[in-house]
Amino acid sequence: MAGFDKVVLSYDEAMAGLDDGMTVIAGGFGLCGIPENLIAEIKRRQTKGLTVVSNNCGVDGFGLGILLEDKQIRKMVASYVGENALFEQQLLNGELEVDLTPQGTLAEKMRAGGAGIPAFYTATGVGTPVAEGKETRTFHEKEFLLEESITGDFAIVKGWKADRYGNVMYRHTAQNFNPLAATAGKVTVVEVEEIVDVGELEPSQIHTPGIYVDRVIQGSFEKRIEKVTVRS
């Protein structure tokens, strides 16, 4: 590698430095826009005791769900964890800890974490179990909760196209949490469908500027669909 060139050629290199007990922030919504090969690489490495922050935890046998098979996840921070029998089982056995976080708060925690903001006030969750143990404050006669932001040792991200400098574009709703996760990792790894030459991406159309990105790798993707719905 030289200069701003972030491209790595193997998944082993892409996830180098991942250790037991680390926090990994992952992009994706359901199975849409998930970094499926980076997740598979975490499974291959058998890293244990991970805290994983992602909107969902995949499904049985795909996405983040495969990290449950060998009990690699110690704690999951997510807004919704249905559709996953192994998750339920490990949660009930006490092998897995879960921190259910409202979806918008989760997105903002990542955004704020990446933007150097340690905490923020939100009305979301006031008067609910989410508020337990959290500081509240009144602004304009309305009550708000103080929520702390999140950063990760690693952020794993799925993009559509990237250039060698790590400028990334996402495709359709596969964007979701990915650009937020990208800002919040000490090491941010982006896997994409296509790596293009520097200068090919229109600067004003870039979703994630390369400054946030440490490593880029080109992969091939299954892109499994959770609920195929078509009109007749």
């Binding site: 997510a78 807004s79 919704y80 964890v81 409202p102 979806q103 918008g104 979301t124 609910t128």
Partner: peptide, 15 residues
């Protein structure tokens, strides 16, 4: 009962 999560519902009603 098993709790699957609030998804975006808390944000929707708060906002």
């Amino acid at each position: 009962k098993l709790v699957k999560g609030m998804g975006g519902a808390m944000d929707l009603v708060a906002g």
